[in-house]
Design a protein around this nucleic acid. Structure first.
Lengths: 337, 337
DNA sequence: TAAAAAAGCGGAAACATTACCGGAAGCGTT
DNA sequence: AACGCTTCCGGTAATGTTTCCGCTTTTTTA
């Protein structure tokens, strides 16, 4: 697997030095237009491919960016990855994966075993319970560029990209109100996650704006799974004042809610409205189809990667926090008739 | 991002040469137990992390393996990837992704632009229409280890891992027969793909074994999408002799079939049985729930990666073809009452 | 028109590691 | 006591590229 053609070959071919070839290829100063063109031409002719190991060794950098995330077998994350991949590929970067299975221990393990020398930067979405993120703080302090997406570590001063959880939740709730539901509950995510908090706040703000009633029992925190959504819904139905609509923190929990409603023979839409968040493909498969807020997953991936590349290439790039809007997609589960 | 501690530091610390340290770390010959232990101890104490760029440069290898596949936002492939990731991570390998979006052109582009020097091996599932695979042949000839999974290129002499399409289809069909369906149709995949052919053969073999009728119009070839499944089903329903059961090449097409049946007010299970293939999460969400053959996606990923690592480390590892069995999962869509 | 600056290029070191070769001990054998 | 094996280790070259420094040659400036 040794390199087929190197810059030495180009240099020999043109009777110039390797340093000149190197500069010409990178298009930096100190090389005339003429020789630069010649170098580029013969490089193309000989089918020259740079050896990233050598570059990495010399420059102390590679062309690999690491992606650390909880799961990959999941519509949202796999779509984000596709976005990341898109821009990374176009810029000649490779992406290497580390999946935490949502376990903070695994996350720490990955960070510690990370061959830090073989990664130019990190794109991360933290594990659910990772309230502690000193491990990220550490590698960041050591100079590793990091961009957080979706589940961000607020304490670390770097770029972050998220979807607009607040406004998405606001819009979802307002949609339920507009469709005549009056007792709207929220099946929330795990406490502590900023995503959970923002969606909750959006929900509360919409209720407040329209002078709708709120009740403490109408907000239930639990995990992200379908199972949790189902259990939460039974609790809601069994509470003193059962709600007539449910806004779930994600589609999986919304689907869990729908299953619970079906089990109790409650007609979805007509009697109890349901709105999710994500736009998982399952939301069009379940019957009735699920109204949801479509997350801009692909764009989150693209934007994060673009930002990371800026952090990598420009030494003092100012961190940006970008918030991408979601889109309400109205389907059957939130319509009265 | 320069390396923090190198083998030089270890050598200086112990007053020995770097070559000895190098040998000790790799646990090769020519180093005494005593010094090896010392080296290992101080390496751990100084928190030494190998620089893969340097290793790669010196040895002509990296610790990256490339994964080329059609999609990633899809249950099957993302699960395979999780399996790959699992073993790669445990062996200290990184995985780098290239998604073809099922486009042969993109596939060729990737292969051509591949920084061949930065990958130790390739794990690939070819694009649907990639009947030509000279591009893979080429890099394989140049010495790049390749393992194919799921969608394999038969012409290339290397390891392959697949699920047992034939027996899975056989079992699915037999299950329909056992449940009293007599006119069983097959919504197949695109022609030319070996996966398509094997599932078709399994279906036919089961029918033959039980002396069930077959009809040419009962086998329809088309793409893998839900849309295709729906269209195929309308054709079946409108054919001379409408079938009373449908075995689909995958779950998405099966779901398309169910949608078509629902649109025609045909009761799924009772009137027309449906069986899919994959065990996509959607199969438990749709109503009625979908009977299917669960593919061993995770194990396919694990096994492929294990084989690839053997090809990488052992120069003349004999190619293996492994076939992993699927599992019939009976749900509501194939039960008469 | 001489001096100063700029442009263009080459040489060599450096990056961290491995591979090859040679050599010094230490051992037993004759 | 000389010989030949092992065993263990060090020195050096090599991998492909970048970067720094310095040397010419050309252009600009005074």
């Amino acid at each position: 697997m040794a390199n087929l053609v190197t810059i030495k070959d180009i240099a020999r071919e043109l009777n110039i030095s390797v340093s000149t070839v190197s500069r010409a290829l990178r298009d930096t100063y100190d090389v005339s237009h003429d020789t630069r063109d010649k170098v580029l031409a013969t490089a193309a002719r000989l089918n020259y491919k740079p050896n990233y190991n050598a570059i990495g060794l010399a420059k102390g950098s590679t062309h690999n960016i690491g992606v650390i995330l909880p799961f990959i077998t999941n519509y949202y994350f796999s779509t984000v990855i596709t976005g990341i991949q898109e821009v990374a590929y176009s810029k000649g970067y490779n992406i290497v994966f580390f999946v935490t299975n949502d376990s903070p221990e695994r996350e720490v393990d990955i960070l510690e075993n990370l061959a830090i020398s073989s990664l130019d930067g990190l794109l991360v979405s933290i594990a659910t319970d990772s309230d502690a993120y000193e491990h990220f703080e550490l590698v960041h302090k050591e100079g590793m560029p990091i961009v957080f997406f979706d589940r961000v570590a607020n304490g670390i001063k770097t770029s972050k990209v998220m979807q607009d959880d607040y406004n998405g939740a606001f819009e979802a709730t307002e949609h339920l109100i507009a469709n005549g539901y009056t007792k709207i509950a929220h099946i929330a995510g795990p406490r502590g996650l900023s995503l959970t908090q923002k969606r909750l706040n959006g929900y509360l703000a919409a209720l407040q704006k329209h002078n709708m009633p709120t009740r403490e029992e109408w907000v239930i925190h639990s995990g992200f799974s379908q199972q949790c959504g189902e259990e939460d819904t039974y609790k809601l139905l069994d509470s003193e004042e059962a709600p007539d609509a449910i806004f779930a923190v994600n589609d999986r929990k919304a689907i869990g809610a729908m299953i619970a409603l079906k089990n109790r023979k409650i007609r979805i839409g007509k009697e109890v409205g349901v709105v999710g968040f994500t736009n998982d493909p399952a939301s069009t498969i379940i019957s009735p189809t699920l109204t949801t807020i479509a997350e801009p997953a692909f764009d989150v991936g693209k934007k994060s990667c673009e930002l990371l590349l800026k952090h990598i290439t420009k030494k003092h790039f100012q961190p940006e926090e970008v918030i991408l809007p979601g889109t309400l997609i109205v389907r059957e589960s939130s319509i009265r008739n």
